[in-house]
Computed example of a mutant assay.
Amino acid sequence: MATLNEQLETLIKEYSPCDVSDALIKLQKTPEGSTARAGYLADLVPFSPVTGRNETTPKIAAPATTFKFIPKSSSPPPLATENPEKHGFQPGKHWVDHVGSYAASDPSGAGSIVVIEQPEGQYCAVTGGIMATRMKALGIKATVVGGRVRDLRELQATGLPIWAQATSTVGTNAEAKAGARDVPISIGGVTVSPGDIIFCDPLEGVVAIPRELLGQVLELMPKLIAMDDQAKEAVAQGMSVTDAFKKFRS
């Protein structure tokens, strides 16, 4: 059986987030009345090392270490207060100093990507130049922010791949604070749990793969891609899309 690092190498070399979402549509059960998100972390764009979708920076995949931010006036979630050593923040230690904890405890040695949930409707940034510098020093492979970042020149100077939904000039303390770490979080309706695989493609976008589904996703994608290749070839030869889908996708 392939190791996690071998699986991640295959994912990066051979597939795109679109391939992953096609597989997750087949594999994940969508609750009745809800919309399938298929792992897609919506509306994220690269802000470091360059700004905007591009084909010049590499794809990255690694397990998630998660951080849940909360409104400044709110109390931390029970998980953080009941088990501060695992899900909270030690006194006198900044939240960013905990970012390497998950990777250090993960026997795969695959490193980690920091994934941050910020409350909706906030206008402050939850990651800036100092945080990015510390993450880089701790060996984080990338950062994905379901919210805002700032200090773009400083972010880009670190070389750390950083994705976010938007930017700000305002520091975190204006509205937000770190509430818990290594807990399930939500970005765009997609739940990301610690250890889930985050796959960042600077051109196509970011997807989250539940860790337990990674093997099935890698097994299914070649079959789906082969079907699509047949359909594209048939369409190129004059077949209608409807007929091609019926013949090769049904």
Rank of each mutant, 00 (worst) to 15 (best):
G189K: 13
K59P: 02
E85V: 05
P71S: 13
A208N: 13
V99Y: 11
Q118F: 01
P71Q: 07
I60H: 03
Y123G: 03
H94L: 14
G33D: 06
A244R: 04
V20F: 07
G92F: 11
A2C: 02
V20A: 07
R134L: 12
P71I: 05
C18H: 11
H87L: 08
M227N: 01
T242G: 06
N5T: 07
L138G: 00
V126Q: 01
A36F: 01
E55W: 15
Q7W: 00
E32K: 14
P202S: 12
G195Y: 01
A61L: 14
V50F: 06
K29F: 06
G39A: 09
S108I: 04
G111Q: 11
L79R: 15
R148Q: 07
V170M: 13
F67Y: 09
V45S: 14
A38N: 04
P46S: 13
A2M: 12
R211K: 15
T133S: 15
K136V: 08
T133G: 14
T167N: 09
R148S: 07
Q237I: 04
K26I: 08
L155N: 14
R134M: 10
V115A: 08
P222R: 05
S21Q: 14
A110R: 06
A164Q: 03
A42D: 08
V170C: 06
Q7P: 00
P222S: 05
S108C: 08
E14C: 07
S73P: 00
A226G: 03
S16F: 09
K68T: 00
A176I: 11
A42R: 12
L138F: 10
A36Y: 00
T57F: 12
A38P: 00
D106H: 09
G146N: 03
G128N: 07
D243S: 08
R211Q: 14
V145K: 01
W163E: 03
L41V: 03
W163H: 05
G146K: 06
A142L: 03
A23N: 12
T51Q: 12
